[in-house]
């Protein structure tokens, strides 16, 4: 039973995607990764609207003070085991927004992160590579 769950998780991880104060560039690149040219759906990845259905949380953007508690709440709503991808330099470290008074920094200040994908904005190919790394990690966990 456990192995079936692990197998299905690797074959079809469902992602939830959240913008925590990004400039939209990473958002459109993550969306572009889902559209025909790059097409991460061939790995069985589906975009979901609710945190309760998701295995992987993809976060774009530096965390603003308004969004930080909400990000935490979304993360807590996801069922275990859960994984987080930080897409973009802002999500990784705060990036270009250093010194802005309303920005906390990277998302690892709020929730634990499994895969960091750098880039400003992330290239869809980098998103695919990040996802592939995460799948390898899942394989090990199994």
């Amino acid at each position: 039973m456990v192995s079936i769950i692990g197998w299905s998780r690797i074959r079809s991880p469902w992602i939830l995607y959240m913008c925590t104060g990004a400039c939209n560039a990473c958002d459109i690149e993550v969306l572009a990764a889902l559209t025909p040219r790059f097409d991460v759906e061939r790995f069985g990845i589906l975009l979901k609207g609710s945190p309760r259905h998701a295995d992987v949380l993809v976060v774009t953007g530096a965390v603003t003070r308004q969004v930080a508690p909400r990000l935490k709440r979304i993360y807590e709503q996801m069922p275990n085991p859960k994984f987080v991808i930080a897409a973009g330099t802002c999500a990784t470290s705060g990036g270009v927004y250093w010194g802005c008074y309303n920005v906390l920094g990277g998302i690892d200040k709020v929730i634990p992160v499994d895969v960091y994908i750098p880039g400003c904005p992330v290239h869809p190919q980098a998103v695919i590579q990040g996802v592939a790394k995460l799948l390898a990690k899942l394989q090990e966990a199994k």
Partner: peptide
């Protein structure tokens, strides 16, 4: 998603401002 960019502009040099303004809207 208020990040404080207008204030952030004042902390940066004129050239750095270009790259911050680029990231107001991607």
């Amino acid at each position: 998603v208020h990040r404080g960019i207008e204030k952030g502009m004042e902390l940066r040099s004129w050239v750095q401002g270009i790259y911050l303004s680029e990231r107001i809207c991607g």
